[in-house]
Amino acid sequence: MNTLFKSVYTPESAIRHPIKLLREMFRDLLASRELAWRLFVRDVSARYRQSFLGYLWAFLPPIVGTFTFVLLNRSGILNVGNMPLPYPAYVMIGTLLWQVFADAINSPIKAVTAAKTMLAKINFPREAILISGMLEVLFNFTIRLVLLITIFICYGIVPPMTMPLALIGVFAIFCLGFMIGIILTPIGLLYTDIGQALSMVLSFWMLFTPVVYTPPTTGILAQLTLLNPVSPLIVTTREWLAIGTASNLLPALIVFLVTIVLLFVGWLLYRLAMPILVERMGG
């Protein structure tokens, strides 16, 4: 008779029973796989159904972005420094990698906000929302790989031996963005300021990241670029992908390890905050 699953709800903070909390976190993570996949399929299949150009919209922004910078560079407005690669290829790779970071940082707040009513009314593994957001970011990157292949062929870039490592690099960039996003989620759901500020900060942030030009070695910009955790990841990934070197490996490794730890902290925070968010968000 006591085989029935029992849940107990009390005012007590869940973090007081860390073992139980951890067990529940991983149980829910496992339980959320199927739902996460469903939600992901739902979002992807609905996204372009009401559109004439359809999946072309996944490609247009990076193409237009690359085109803009190539134009700026040609006309001499932008001084991009020494290029290890043909400039269009450099920009395209940088833009695609940066896009992964930007998408990942926005993903948790966007996904949770979109699922607000559902979260407020139904008890399902909360991790599903995050994972379906993750899948969507990675999916977007995957379809944009077509652009990457095109540019490799156009400029006759021979893929170096290190190319497969770039997958790890992309994953690290993704984790860093997602980690920042998830840590901001609890506050971002209470105050819309976070979401507003995020898009502004991101466009500014890109300028301190070697996305469309090589980082300068002296001056304020150089200092800022040095402190920027995204830089070593993007630089390393790009090098692995198209050049075959790894000039920034140690900082990249440190950033990645810290990211993984903080990602877990963010997940913990997300779980603890969820009942309070549901209570305050209404819906």
């Binding site: 849940s7 709800y9 005012p11 407020a120």
Partner: peptide, 10 residues
């Protein structure tokens, strides 16, 4: 979905 402020639910 939300936690009680007092008491207990099983």
């Amino acid at each position: 979905l939300i936690k009680p402020d007092k008491g207990q639910i099983e």
